[in-house]
Design a protein around this nucleic acid. Structure first.
Length: 631
DNA sequence: CTAGGGTTAG
């Protein structure tokens, strides 16, 4: 036995009230090949010797891994084996088991082994402690155990070790103890890039982007991971523009993006509809063999979907070597928002045949597909199927989809009954779906009820007031329409202006309804006037009922002609080569008048026009829209 | 033998 003057003491170094799980005290521990008596081990050991096997540390560690957590007798036998291994110090073997266990499915075992190490006559070294901390980081309730290890590290005098200190910072960070992590970070005698990266990652998760940025700017040397963490943070907190800016800076700084960077930046491209950059990242991913990474492909598929290129998305999807539930759900949802309900449903069959289990998000996609295409019975079937066949209980999103499905199909009373019977409290999305259906089917009564609820649930959302006001105006009840607008004004709710963006020659151009500060606005107006003549010739009549302002008919028309999506499309016509697809993004839903106009423009100008609005995609081509006017 | 970043809906 190794003797040491500290031999009896390590347990005393631990704060009294903190205890590690006692060996074998956890009955819920998964049964693993435990060795109940030393004799089994001895047989195994004898076999090794007889077969002339060189007693390397490999069989030793296997023996020890199985018996170290078994009966006390087996444990002490294992220890005797440890001590006889001549070529490496005993602590090395402990550590290698700790390593295995800390990254296993039950990191608790690592803590149990660590506790045994502490009650032995050996002292843990920096490696042992780092494995114990890793285990603590992975266990949801192990922050106290982590603090105990931290105390031990301090008392054993390991505190100048940067590597170990980083593990401590990460342990606190992984439990969301930001201030403890920060305290440790500040106290450390020296810090490296990893120390900063851990803090940046935590701060971005907390949404503290300014602090994260400060750390990033402060750190002496930034690694690919530093850049990637910050970029991913901006993406997560819906600042994709900043993410892209940082990504371009990163390239300038000569850093090489890796798979994780690609995922983050593709996600930003999806948000922005930045197809050009997305394509560039796709090329890059191909060049550096990123395409075998499922997550890269999933995000790429999503990027193409959100940039209006379903076909390309589907091509990437079809060529993937491996597909997870995320891949299938993304593609199903993609077909759905592009109005390809049948493809979505077919893909679900393929998914089942591939043996992939759908999750709640898969069903959001399927229900979306049904509501966008008016597939009433299929929608009802999926809604039932999710709980009966897959025991997935519908969440608020699923209820929202069902209300959308029913009310757009004209079953407004059923939709209302459905809402009243919902086991969870309906939210703004649910009532908003009902309101949308009420507009389509001109049901003033239902619209009024929906708005009554929405005023409480989502009081600052101007869209609802606008819709109800539209319903009134459409029915010729202009007084009521005006009353809703007054109500809106009294409540201090401002109408969100419509904004449409289009990328031309790599630059993003934004048009705001009614505004005229684009450098080529005169050209745009002129082109529109020419176009208008042709449109009228093909039966276009401005539908001024969508204009809620109090003004003369003539003025209303002008307002209508300055809708952001029209301006953007016209700019697309003069700013891009003939025959190329025009891609627009809009912050609100496309209005009825623009919808009819865009259909005609696709014929007159012989262009495909893809519009991503708040809800879905509209692809205008040869006078028709992919939504089949059901939206 | 030890540490850090990522995907689908709303």
């Amino acid at each position: 036995m190794v003797s040491s003057c500290l031999a009896a003491s390590p347990n005393l170094l631990l704060p009294r009230q903190i205890s590690f799980p006692a060996p074998n005290s956890d009955p819920s521990l998964p049964t693993k090949p435990t060795i109940s008596s030393p004799s089994h081990l001895q047989q195994l050991h004898a076999l090794l010797i007889k077969s002339g096997s060189p007693i390397s540390s490999l069989p030793f560690s296997h023996i020890a891994a199985t018996c170290a957590l078994s009966s006390p007798a087996a444990f002490s036998y294992a220890r005797r084996l440890f001590q006889r291994s001549a070529d490496s110090p005993e602590i090395f073997l402990w550590n290698s088991h700790l390593n295995t266990l800390s990254s296993s499915s039950s990191p608790n075992d690592a803590l149990r082994l660590f506790a045994r190490l502490l009650s032995s006559d050996l002292l843990p070294d920096t490696f042992s402690c780092s494995f114990a901390l890793k285990a603590c980081s992975q266990l949801p309730d192990a922050i106290l155990a982590g603090k105990a290890v931290h105390a031990l590290i301090f008392k054993l005098g390991f505190d100048p070790d940067v590597f170990l200190n980083n593990t401590v910072v990460h342990m606190y960070s992984s439990h969301g103890a930001v201030s403890d992590a920060r305290l440790m970070f500040d106290k450390m005698s020296s810090r490296d890039a990893v120390s900063y990266n851990i803090m940046i990652a935590r701060l971005t998760k907390e949404g503290e982007m300014e602090l994260a940025r400060e750390m990033f700017d402060l750190m002496p040397e930034r690694s690919v991971r530093s850049w990637t963490s910050l970029i991913a943070g901006y993406v997560q907190w819906k600042n994709p523009r900043e993410a892209v800016r940082l990504f371009l800076q990163m390239e300038t700084a000569g850093m090489k993006p890796n798979e994780v960077t690609a995922v983050a930046i593709l996600s930003a491209c999806a948000d922005l509809g930045a197809l050009d950059l997305g394509k560039r990242v796709h090329d890059y991913a191909r060049r550096f063999q990123f395409m075998k990474n499922v997550r890269v492909c999933n995000t790429l598929v999503d990027m193409y979907i959100k940039c209006g290129c379903v076909e390309t998305a589907r091509k990437v999807f079809d060529e993937m070597s491996e597909r997870t539930v995320v891949s299938w759900s993304a593609m199903i949802g993609g077909h759905a928002i592009h109005g390809q309900g049948e493809d979505a449903l077919e893909l679900f069959e393929d998914m089942r045949n591939a043996g992939i289990r759908p999750n709640p998000i898969t069903f959001v996609g399927l229900l979306h597909a049904c509501s966008h295409m008016g597939l009433l019975e299929e929608g009802r079937r999926f809604f039932k199927l999710m709980s009966t066949d897959y025991s997935i209980e519908p969440e608020i999103e699923h209820y929202g989809c069902m209300v959308d499905l029913l009310s757009r199909a004209g079953l407004l009373d059923e939709a209302l009954g459905f809402i009243r019977r919902m086991p969870i409290k309906p939210n703004g999305v649910v009532w908003g779906a009902l309101l949308g259906g009420a507009r389509v089917h001109k049901r003033i009564d239902v619209g009024q009820e929906a708005l009554r609820q929405l005023i409480h649930l989502d009081p600052l959302n101007d869209g609802y007031f606008v819709v109800l006001s539209n319903i009134y105006a459409d029915a010729g009840r202009f007084e009521d329409a005006a009353r809703v607008r007054r109500l809106m004004r009294d409540k201090g709710v401002k109408k969100t202006p419509g904004r449409s963006t289009i990328a031309v020659d790599g630059a993003l151009h934004e048009f705001v309804a009614g505004e005229s500060d684009h450098p080529r606005i005169e050209e745009i107006y002129k082109k529109w006037d020419e176009l208008l003549v042709e449109l009228r010739g093909r039966g276009y009549a401005p539908d001024t009922s969508v204009v809620l302002l109090d003004m003369e008919e003539r003025e209303k028309e002008t307002v209508l002609y300055r809708h952001s999506e029209k301006l953007a499309v016209v700019f697309g016509l003069i700013g891009t080569p003939p025959g190329t697809t025009i891609r627009i993004m809009k912050n609100l839903r496309v209005c009825d008048d623009c919808h009819s106009a865009l259909k005609l423009i696709s014929v007159v100008a012989k262009r495909e026009i893809v519009v991503r609005d708040r809800n879905r995609f509209h692809c205008f081509r040869e006078g028709l829209c992919s939504c089949r006017d059901y939206w």
